[in-house]
Simulated assay, not measured.
Amino acid sequence: MLLTAEELKRSSEVDPTIEEFIKANPRPNLQLGDYVATQNMIAGFERMTNESLGELESTLTEYYIDINLRDGTPSRLKVVRPSTPPQEGSPLITLLFGGGFCAGTEEQMTPYARGFARAFGAVVVCPKYRVAPQHPFPAQQLDSFDGIKWAAAHAAELHADPTKGFVVGGVSAGGNCAASVVRMAQDEPLAYPITGQWLSIPSIFEASVVPQKYKSNFISREQNANAHVLNEEALEAIRKYTKWDSDSPIRFPTLSKAPLSELPPTFTQVCGMDPLRDDGLIYDEMLKEAGVKTRINLYQGCPHGHWTTFKGLEISRQGFKDVMTGLGWLLGKEISEEEGLKALAIPGV
């Protein structure tokens, strides 16, 4: 989805309701320069969010599975599924968390996992991956692949039927890991083919890897350098801690030699006032040009992941609505926005 220079500029102008919310509720941006503080902050956010969800209803089952990664390191998956599988079978959805590759856990995706299990009868698996700087690149992407590979290979014992749908999704850093897993699966096929990918506010590029024809469209790093929530200072800290290889297709999915045309339908969410805005817009355009079915939502004047940060606003409610209808689109299951919000059941949304 390519925009004109004027449209890009307009998308970076703060939404009035967001601006009013920030003035009334001042808060610091992500301080990724202090990764310990960031890890603690995001862990606290995850804990508080999941506690607010209340007791799990009897129609859902939630548990953990211990696995070993490719290097023998123990890891685990969080699983949420219907207690009684639907007669038509449960699609498999795998979700990867965000946190700048430096923070976050598999617990972060619990609200979405429960919502998808309720709305679509899905078995939802949330892999854990190791974070930087203790575990630099490519631990995040490879751990994600190993977790999803395990889930696909053990779908039957998870009570999932990936022939009914197999979606890989993630938010922010998790969006990058999701895009990378889907590309890696082209070279190392999983037990079942991936049928869709959800890339929410993903990190896909840096300037050096943007194809020449799109370089004039890659301006959000400068345009939103001082944006709320995520800014260029935070991105620089991420680069420092993860120590990624700028020539690696594991970090940058468009560097893969596998054909883009063979990728599954892709649902992308992009925030206008986000340094990562043009990552999602350009990748969506590249996929469309390659003949991939795509669906994209752009939130004008909104910072990175605004729906989780500025709850209660209509523009934030729209972000959550789009998550549910977008996943329904990937699974071929139509769901109304209000049905989606009801299934998500996040307090304050």
Rank of each mutant, 00 (worst) to 15 (best):
A225Q: 14
N297V: 14
T38N: 12
P275M: 04
V210W: 00
F320I: 06
R76T: 10
A258G: 03
N297I: 12
C126T: 13
N40H: 13
Q87D: 10
S11P: 03
D278M: 01
G328V: 11
D322M: 03
D187E: 15
N231F: 01
D322N: 13
D187P: 01
W307E: 15
D322Y: 03
A113W: 05
P162H: 11
E233G: 09
P91M: 11
F320A: 13
L32G: 10
G348Y: 06
G175Q: 09
P265Q: 08
D187V: 03
S246F: 09
Y64V: 12
G328Y: 06
R10Q: 15
W150M: 03
T294F: 07
G121M: 02
T294S: 05
S248K: 05
D245S: 04
A179D: 02
D279Y: 00
L190Y: 02
M48F: 14
S52Q: 15
Q318M: 12
G165S: 08
Q140G: 14
M324Q: 12
S336C: 08
K257I: 04
E314H: 10
V125M: 03
P26R: 09
S83C: 06
L142A: 06
M48T: 15
L281Y: 03
F166Y: 11
H159G: 04
E339D: 15
M273W: 04
I238R: 05
A290Q: 08
G319S: 02
E188A: 13
A258Y: 03
E339W: 02
E314W: 04
P85G: 09
S172C: 09
L30D: 11
V124R: 02
L8P: 01
I194C: 01
D143Q: 07
S58G: 11
N68C: 11
A191H: 01
W150L: 04
D247N: 14
E233M: 09
E233I: 12
L327S: 10
A132N: 01
G174F: 03
G319V: 00
S220F: 00
D245E: 00
S246K: 15
G44H: 11
E88G: 01
G328N: 10
S12E: 01
R130A: 02
V131C: 13
K164I: 03
K257W: 00
S261Y: 08
G301V: 07
V168S: 08
F218A: 05
T163Y: 04
T84G: 06
G291I: 00
A185F: 00
V171P: 02
E7K: 11
K78T: 12
N68L: 14
D161M: 05
A132I: 02
D274G: 05
I219A: 01
E62W: 03
S316N: 11
Q186N: 07
V270T: 12
I67S: 12
P16Y: 05
T325F: 05
R27Y: 00
T268S: 09
C302T: 14
R70G: 07
I93F: 08
R27E: 00
E337V: 01
V79K: 04
L56K: 13
A152S: 12
S208R: 02
R239S: 11
E334F: 07
P265M: 01
P26I: 04
D71C: 03
F310A: 13
Y112E: 11
V14G: 05
T59I: 08
T49Y: 12
A191K: 06
S75D: 01
D278R: 06
A345L: 05
